[in-house]
Write a protein that binds this DNA or RNA. Structure first.
Length: 426
DNA sequence: TCTGGGGTCCTAGGACCC
DNA sequence: TCTGGGGTCCTAGGACCC
């Protein structure tokens, strides 16, 4: 059976999510910003056409934004995450094997559909997502993931394709590959582009015919897989069930610089609490925790960056215990006289909550642990239902002056009862 | 004033073991 | 006089992704 993979890629996903609930944004230039309104992370076609680059600092484009009346939004991950979930659920109707690759992309196994016209099937998927969720998508179909990525790229560029491109119906794939610059190939980043270009390898086609030995030597086995996939040989399997995360990070710039130990402790406690919740949601426990802090490298102030790791005797997912240990780290790491700009917590050495090594005094231990588990389960349930931090640990603070800035955030249309859009008939 | 956040995988090299 | 070799585990660093 021939291998057929479809990559379904949401167009300008964050912008599209905002547009679903605010039709006035249609055909207008729209931007979505990163946390703290720092960088531009999503752009509508109209904004791209104005020359706003991906990842650019927001403040550098203020003038252009005003001049062209560009609509700007802070990131609203609650909304995007929920919309993503809906898209993915709908996709699962079209193939029994779906890999949710990122918030806005999924690979579908369409190998069983080869007798059908896959382009038509793709159109059906596209129309259904648009109709049911309101999100526009582009679909690329190919024998391998790397080629499906390229097919999607082509479908985005060539408007006559109507958002769906099956690369296998093209009579000459090499011809297509010869106009794809090497840096547009999935898995080839900046450094590899530099290296490959220095060898005269400029396009996807060039890479396809480079000696595999040379590629493996310089681009490791990862590069070799890309080469094989370009040749139509599947090497990167579809993963339906994502394996549990091996580490969990919560790090973020503070809404304003922090100078006191108290505020730093609060902010780090908050980050720990969020990381712990992610940890429990995948039923893991952490065996060590790392705290890091840093000053603002873009500012002419005394610089200080430091991190510290602390391990647990028994892996844990109990927020108070994680926070207690993190607080000790903060105390060790904190130096007065600096303006702390950002900080983070990472949880590592993750093990399954069920496989935690039982201590020498199981009776006491098990009892205590069960109570803690119950407490955390309840806390997560309450917060899921009533909003984050309905229940929280005292050291996370109340006022939170360091909280991130989101000046242009849209309502949580789909995840908060109070913010559901209201339609009025006049 | 304002410059993102969260992940993965691979390799090389050192420590250690038998 | 002659001083091995293979395996595993861990970590740091470097590449990549969205």
């Amino acid at each position: 059976m021939q291998n057929r993979i479809a990559l379904v890629d949401c167009d300008n996903f964050y912008v599209s999510c905002e547009r679903v609930f605010n039709p006035h944004l249609k055909n207008e230039p729209v931007l979505v910003l990163s946390n703290n309104d720092g960088c531009i992370v999503a752009r509508s076609q109209e904004a791209k056409a104005l020359g706003v680059p991906m990842g650019a600092p927001f403040f550098q484009y203020q003038k252009l934004i005003q001049d062209h009346k560009v609509k700007v939004y802070s990131s609203n991950y609650a909304l995007y995450g929920d919309m993503s979930k809906r898209v993915m659920e709908t996709l699962k109707r079209f193939s029994p094997k779906v890999e949710v690759y990122s918030i806005d992309e999924a690979f579908l196994d369409l190998s069983g559909f080869t007798h059908q016209r896959l382009t038509e099937h793709g159109q059906l998927i596209r129309n259904t997502i648009k109709k049911h969720i309101g999100i526009p998508v582009t679909i690329g179909i190919a024998p391998t993931k790397v080629l499906a990525k390229i097919a999607t790229k082509i479908a985005k560029k060539d408007k006559t394709l109507n958002g769906v491109f099956d690369i296998t119906i093209h009579p000459n794939i090499d011809e297509l590959l010869s106009i794809i610059p090497i840096e547009d190939v999935w898995g080839i980043g900046k450094q590899y582009t530099k290296l490959l270009n220095s060898q005269g390898i400029l396009t996807a086609k060039d890479l396809k015919y480079t000696p595999p030995k040379w590629i493996q030597k310089h681009l490791t086995i990862v590069g070799l897989r890309i080469l094989k996939e370009l040749n139509g040989e599947p090497c990167i399997p579809l993963e339906e069930l994502p394996p549990p995360r091996k580490g969990i990070i919560c790090s973020r710039a503070f809404g304003k610089p922090i100078e006191t130990l108290e505020e730093l402790t609060e902010a780090i406690s908050e980050y720990v609490s969020r990381a712990a919740q992610k940890l429990r949601s995948q039923n893991s426990a952490a065996s060590f925790l790392q705290v890091y802090v840093s000053t603002n490298p873009f500012k002419a102030v005394p610089q200080y960056i430091n991190s510290i790791t602390s391990t647990f005797l028994t892996p844990t997912s109990f927020t108070p215990e994680l926070i207690r240990q993190a607080k000790e780290c903060v105390q060790q790491i904190y130096r007065p006289g600096y303006q702390y700009h950002d900080g983070g917590v990472s949880l590592g050495g993750l093990t399954s909550q069920k496989q935690i090594q039982i201590s020498l005094f199981p009776k006491i231990d098990t009892q205590k642990r069960n109570k803690r588990t119950e407490l955390m389960t309840t806390l997560d349930k309450v917060n899921r239902c009533w909003g984050r931090n309905t229940l929280q640990i005292a050291s996370q603070g109340i006022k939170k002056p360091w909280k991130m800035n989101r000046s242009f955030v849209s309502p949580h249309y789909t995840t908060r009862w109070q913010e559901i859009p209201v339609v009025r008939a006049y």
